[in-house]
Amino acid sequence: QTELNQMVESMNLLLESLKNHESLNVDLYSGLLVDASIVKLPYLYFLPDVSKENEISLVPYIASQHSATWRISKYLNELLRPFVDKIVSTVFTKRELQSTTLFCAIKITNYHKLDIHKNMIDTVSYFLEENLITNKLEQVTIQNIKNLLHIFLYNNVFYYKDQIYTLTKGSPNTMPLADTLSNIYVFVWQKQILKQLQLNNEFFGRYKDQIFLTWSNGNEEQLGSFLQTIRDKSPNVQFQKLIASSVPFLNAFVQNQNGDLFSRIHRHPLIQGYSLPYEVGHAKLVHSDWLRSALIRAVCYCSSVEDFNLERIYLELTCLTNGYSL
């Protein structure tokens, strides 16, 4: 408790000094101030990832809703997220699928612990400088975003088995800001891939830690060695790759059928079938929305009507199995 209080005190001192230098106005300052009486030390827990056969891997979570950094993270995320979403959603594409075009699915395995805090702050700053017309985002200067980011990143602590830990890379994945920061970092990192792909009119898409790209410029070996050079240049981003003429990507199975794009729904073979996503709160409402969006997704994903019908029946059966009427 003493350590936690000291940490809160040092955070508030930094905020106060920002206010005194007129970097923060009084309202924002009082909104970000950390209230030691309600702050709780976050704890670490794990959930099993059962997607690999014969192996349990672990997904770490940090319960962070009452942490000292919560308010700053909420503020920064609401500031950065709309801008980041706008910038990173740019897609370069010309439809030039050939019969020999290979598909590649990449999964970044350390998405929430990409780099040390200093480098993360530098990357966010570089990203903002490059994409903002002025040095401000919604009246907040880049320097000030860096200051707040510094307070946030260096004060994320948690406990696990009677010891208090601090994060040296990344931030708690339970905070939306963690996603936003990783998104910025990977956006900057992926530029070196895009540079090459754009030369050859390839397709590139990314959702969080998962990337899909096409490769018409050579064989599997050449794509492999290209990705190896990316790995060597930026060892901080760790990833697994899958290269073939058909790959699963997110929930889709994407195939190159002699130059024609074919896709259908892909379901992970180890995930139990006919189950609804786990929801808390208004489960009935959420599951009803889920059915609607799952049907829309099926329309978008399925190249053939037969595949769509199979998926529709599967989704309807899932609802019935779980006690819902259609």
């Binding site: 350590e3 794990f46 099993p48 672990l58 696990y160 208090i164 601090t166 040296t168 890379k169």
Partner: peptide
Amino acid sequence: LGNCQEFETKAYDYVSKSDAYKVLL
């Protein structure tokens, strides 16, 4: 979960071997 003991051990290994965490106290 299958084997809870294995899960516990893996969790401990995860924390002690991860380069993202450092003991503060």
